[in-house]
Write a protein that binds this DNA or RNA. Sequence first.
DNA 1: GTGAAAGCGCTAACAG
DNA 2: CTGTTAGCGCTTTCAC
Lengths: 334, 334
Amino acid sequence: MAAVSAGTVSKALNGGGQLRAETRQRVLEAARQLGFQPNTLARSLLRGRTYTVGLLTSDSFGRFSIPLMQGIEDALGAGQLAVFLCDARGDAVREQHYLRTLLSRRVDGIIVTGRRADTRAPLSQDPLPVVYAYTKSAAPEDLSVVPDDVQGGRLATEHLLAAGRRHLAHVTGPTRFEAVLERANGMRAALAAAGLEVARDHVLTGSWSEAWGREAATELLDGDRHIDGIFCGSDQIARGVADALRERGVRVPEDIALVGYDNWEVIAAATRPPLTTVDMNLEGLGQAAADHLLAMIGGMRASGIVRLPCRLVIRSSSGVSSLRDWPASGTPPA
Amino acid sequence: MAAVSAGTVSKALNGGGQLRAETRQRVLEAARQLGFQPNTLARSLLRGRTYTVGLLTSDSFGRFSIPLMQGIEDALGAGQLAVFLCDARGDAVREQHYLRTLLSRRVDGIIVTGRRADTRAPLSQDPLPVVYAYTKSAAPEDLSVVPDDVQGGRLATEHLLAAGRRHLAHVTGPTRFEAVLERANGMRAALAAAGLEVARDHVLTGSWSEAWGREAATELLDGDRHIDGIFCGSDQIARGVADALRERGVRVPEDIALVGYDNWEVIAAATRPPLTTVDMNLEGLGQAAADHLLAMIGGMRASGIVRLPCRLVIRSSSGVSSLRDWPASGTPPA
DNA sequence: GTGAAAGCGCTAACAG
DNA sequence: CTGTTAGCGCTTTCAC
């Protein structure tokens, strides 16, 4: 239509080569009129790069995957990379199937995500850049990006200490989750730094549910323990605790200050009073993972475990009003 | 390696052509040893089909998108189709950008999803199969798959009627959502069928939040209304209502039976008492949308609005114990 | 039965 | 400056 050869069109559209401006205009105009979209497949075939990455969830897409995916999409979409979605549902066979699919589609790299930040078996796919996000690869030569749950636990505890609380309890989830241990360790570290420690019967482990939160709160009140602050391993637990306390006539935060974990908006904001809680900044984590992957695709080698800091979101359950510890518009330090 | 030509390899791997069994074996063995994965791009280039579809969320991936995506992935993954993820964040410019990307990548079709089942502008992309899932295209020649919210409202109401309740109220979300109107219409229809109607001051519209549920419950109790059943437009609202009722000494379900909407497990199951609620079966909806898309890719023409039935999930808030209205293992009628 | 050749849509290198 | 050629990895005729 522009009466030029295919090669010339290519140069015109990609801004390359030596072309007369008039010719370039003519081609561009024709392309516009025809609604011409260059065929990415052909280009990929030639270049050996697809500008596509695979997103492989080992567990189903859940609440944690959403912000993570947004962050990943953000970081990759800006770089014009497309994302292939693969939900293995925790099934190794499905995962293997998806892995083959991604390889045959020649993705430039893969991001593997989990439901909890626990350790998992590596993909063992030598020639391809892989980043593990919100899950840790058991292989030390892999790169994993996870939230720093020790720091998160510390953050929550320091906040309670800053609020003048000295008799803290911890109500958390099942000990088989690494996060449970790490958050508790963070708590202990913060207490130790203040010359305090947490009594053995002030740490209650159970499930991640509200029901467990209510049960644990009851147990804490029934014993003869003096408690003025509770750090909960999740917002769901914290909500259960808050409900049980209120129904027993214990005031939050006046009598007992409360800090949750996850910043699950729909839970944390609806709790009475709204929960101060630790935010793992999963969107930032997704972005960081994607950025690392891009670097690896670019030839950079990287391995080990990158821990990203959590931040505290302050609402009223902790009785301290102050700004968030970093500005909402800012990004967490990488 | 198998000492045959590329053409022969192709026939061997794809099971086509006339080959000696021994040759085929030799090729297969060599492919296995080499870990050979045929390059899907090259194949797509040739066939003119990519076995890939785009998933375009107009709103961010949220709670409703998860089951939807699972259903879509299920239906497509089984057919060996891959899914490109595009999150337009409700931004028309981003959406346009993604649309171009998908076209240049030559997807076989597109599924457009929304956050609420409301009407949206069509993609106006003539030559490509498109299905709208959990959102309705304004163009009648497009195909949209949405939950039947009128039927959902009817289901909830009939259940309350079956529980012997006759004085029903409705606490729901903002009237700008089509679902709010449709669910209310379903309620009215069910009541009319029983020779009843709902008083104007028994329908309270507000936001989708727990706080609104609490506020509305208080309002209902403070007025001099006799109410023995409340149908709530969402589980969050229902939870707020349940909390407020309990705190006012009203027993659920003995004094007032409660039915929610969404079957948002984490809310519905944690409510005291656990909520009977309407499930829109979004996973099934995703599957149906994907199946329709496959049919369209296969050459079938289809248009209009497909409404999929909701089902009732019975817990204790409605005071009726019975089986779900269809077996958990079954699939909803398409 | 198997190999050789052409071509999917594009771009890079080289001619002209 | 622009056109021609070759080739990315695969499948599909068509000879042999």
